[in-house]
Amino acid sequence: KTEWPELVGKSVEEAKKVILQDKPEAQIIVLPVGTIVTMEYRIDRVRLFVDKLDNIAQVPRVG
């Protein structure tokens, strides 16, 4: 699995749990929505963009 659209609106902790069940090797990085990030693709990275309430604001994707 490479993306988790069902996690939008969920808490960071809930999202981490689901992603690590699907992809145990994932390196999860939590960032505020709108953060500028590098464009290199990494198969072991999932970025979680969160709103001010620490809920997932964008679809988490591998990369």
Rank of each mutant, 00 (worst) to 15 (best):
A57W: 06
A26L: 12
K17C: 08
V18Y: 09
I29C: 13
P32H: 06
D44R: 05
Q27C: 11
K1V: 07
V33R: 07
V30F: 01
E6R: 03
Q27I: 09
D51S: 02
K17S: 09
I43V: 13
Q27F: 06
E40G: 08
D44F: 04
K17T: 10
K16S: 07
V30A: 05
V30W: 01
V59W: 03
K10F: 08
K16P: 00
K52R: 12
I19R: 01
Q27A: 10
R45D: 15
D22Q: 09
I28R: 00
K17Y: 10
G34K: 07
V59N: 01
T38Y: 06
P5I: 00
V37E: 15
V8I: 10
I28W: 03
A26N: 01
N55E: 07
V12D: 03
E3G: 04
E13Q: 11
D22F: 05
V62K: 01
E13Y: 09
E6M: 04
R47A: 14
K52M: 11
A57F: 03
P60Q: 01
D44M: 05
Q27T: 11
D22M: 05
G63P: 10
I28D: 01
T2G: 09
D51R: 00
Q27Y: 06
M39C: 15
I29S: 12
P5H: 02
S11Q: 08
E6Q: 06
A15I: 00
R42W: 10
N55L: 12
E14V: 12
L31G: 06
D51C: 00
A26C: 11
G63V: 09
V37T: 14
V59P: 08
L20G: 09
G34M: 04
G9A: 02
R45E: 15
I28K: 00
K16I: 05
V59K: 05
K10M: 13
D54A: 11
D54P: 03
I36H: 15
I28Y: 05
D44Y: 06
G9D: 02
P5T: 03
G63A: 09
Y41S: 15
N55A: 09
V18A: 11
S11F: 08
I43M: 14
K17P: 05
V18L: 10
K23F: 15
E40M: 06
I29M: 14
T38S: 14
E25F: 08
K23I: 12
G63M: 12
P5C: 02
E13F: 08
E13K: 10
V46Q: 00
V30D: 02
F49M: 09
I28F: 15
R47L: 14
E13G: 10
A15K: 02
L20Q: 11
G9C: 04
V46Y: 02
K52Y: 12
K1L: 04
V37M: 10
I19H: 00
T38A: 14
K17N: 07
I28E: 01
Q27N: 10
V37H: 13
V30Y: 02
I56Y: 00
P60F: 00
L20I: 07
P32T: 05
K1Q: 12
K23L: 15
M39Y: 10
I29G: 03
Q21L: 10
A57V: 13
R42H: 13
G63I: 08
I19G: 01
V30K: 06
P32Y: 04
I56M: 03
T35D: 10
L7D: 00
I43R: 13
V50H: 06
E13W: 07
V30Q: 04
P5G: 00
E40K: 08
R61I: 09
L31K: 07
A26P: 02
N55C: 11
L31I: 15
V8F: 06
L48A: 02
K52D: 09
E13S: 12
V12S: 08
E40W: 02
P32L: 05
L31A: 14
R45S: 15
V62S: 11
S11P: 14
I43Q: 13
E25C: 08
A57P: 03
G34Y: 04
W4Q: 00
E13D: 10
Q58A: 12
V50Y: 06
L48D: 01
V62C: 10
E3M: 06
V46H: 01
P24C: 04
I36A: 15
L7R: 02
E14G: 04
K1F: 11
I36R: 14
D54Y: 09
E13A: 14
L7T: 04
V37A: 14
G34D: 11
V46E: 01
R45T: 15
D51P: 00
I28M: 08
I56T: 01
V33T: 10
R42P: 15
E25I: 02
N55Q: 11
D44I: 00
I36M: 14
E3S: 12
V59Y: 02
A57K: 07
L31C: 13
A57E: 06
T35W: 05
G63C: 12
W4T: 02
Y41P: 13
T2W: 11
Y41D: 15
M39K: 12
Q21M: 11
Q21P: 00
L31H: 09
L31W: 05
I56V: 15
A26Y: 06
P60H: 02
E6Y: 03
Q21E: 10
E40I: 02
V37Y: 13
K23R: 13
A15G: 10
R61G: 08
S11I: 04
E14K: 07
Q27L: 07
G63L: 09
L20R: 11
I29L: 12
V30T: 09
V59A: 07
P24Q: 05
V8D: 02
I29Q: 13
E6P: 02
R45I: 14
I28V: 11
L20T: 10
L53H: 14
P24V: 03
D54H: 07
K17H: 06
I56E: 02
K17I: 07
G9M: 02
A26H: 04
E40A: 06
W4K: 03
R61Y: 13
Q21C: 11
V46P: 02
L20Y: 11
I43E: 15
K10R: 12
L31F: 09
L48S: 03
V46K: 02
V12M: 07
I36D: 15
G34T: 08
Q58W: 06
R47Q: 14
W4S: 02
V12T: 06
A57M: 10
A15W: 01
R45P: 11
I29E: 15
T2D: 05
A15Y: 00
P24G: 04
K10N: 08
E40R: 07
V50D: 01
V12A: 10
D51N: 08
G34S: 11
T35S: 13
P60D: 00
L53E: 13
I43N: 14
E6G: 06
V18R: 12
T35E: 14
R47D: 13
K16V: 06
S11C: 07
V33S: 06
V62Q: 07
P60G: 01
R61E: 08
Y41C: 13
R47T: 15
